[in-house]
Amino acid sequence: MHIRPFRDLINDRIALSGLSMLALISFMAIFAPALSDYSPYDYTGQIFSPPSANHPLGTDSMGQDIWSRLLYGARTSLFVAFAVAILSSALSLFIGATSALLGGIYERFWMRVVDAMISIPTIIVMILVAAYLRPSIFLLIILMSLFSWPGGARIVRSQVLSLKEKMHVSAARTFGADWKHILINHITPDLAPIIIAMMIQDARRAVFMEAGLAFLGVSDPMMISWGKMMQQALAFTYLNVWEWWLVPTGLALSLTLVGLSFLGFGLEAAMDPRLQKYKQQRAD
C-alpha cells in the first residue's frame, strides 16, 4: 500500500472541495482575458450599470466592468499568495534548518531575531510601512514574506532538532549515510507536511493581508485588488449595487481563503501515513 498523495487527495471530500474552489479561482485568474471583453481599467461609458449580457456583474462607480476587475483581482490575490508562500517558507526552512543543524551562536542569533520579530504586531507595522511606501505588488510580497517567516522558522528548527535525534536517523548513520542522504530521505519527508501546512498558512495570510491593506487603501492605487473593490463598493451601500459589486467580490475572497484552508487540511492527512490509519479506521 503506497502513499499516493494525489489519489488520496481526490478521495478526501474536504480536500477535493478545497481543491475545486482553488481551481475555480485559478481558472478565473489564468483565463481572465478570455473570460471578459473589457479591460479592468477602461471606462465603459456607463456607471452603476446593473448586470446585463455585456456586463455580467454590471459596472462600478467609475464605469469599469466589475466582472473583469474580479477576474484580474484573482490574479493579484493568487500571485501574492503563491509568491509569499514560496518566499516566506523558503526563508523559514533555510533559517530554521540551518539553525538546528549548525547550532551554536548562529542558532542563538537567529532565534533571538525570531523572538523579536514575533513580538511585533505584524498588521500594524505593515499598515505603517505600507502607508509610507505605497508598495507595488512586488514590494508588498517582499514585505509580507519578511514579516511572516519567523513563526515558520521556529517550527522548522524544533522539528529538525527532534528529527535529527530520531532513531531512524541514527540507523541511517550506521549504514554510513552522509548528511545529504539523511536530509533528503529522513528529515525532509518528515518536514514536508509541516512545510506544506506552513506554505498554505502563509498563502492564506498573504491573501488576507493584501486584501486588508488594499481595503485600507494603503497599497499601490494602480493595483486591481478585491480588497480595494470592497472598499469602493462599501461607499455605495445605499444603492443596491452591492448586490453585484460587494457580494461577488467578498464571495471570491472567501472562496480563496476557504479553499486554501481545506486544501491544507487534506494535504496534511494525505502526506502522513500514520494519519491514514485513522482515516481507514474511520472509513471502516
Partner: peptide
C-alpha cells in the same frame, strides 16, 4: 518502530 522510518515501506 522508531529505528525504521515510518515513511519507508
Amino acid at each position: 518502530k522508531e529505528s525504521v522510518s515510518h515513511r519507508m515501506n
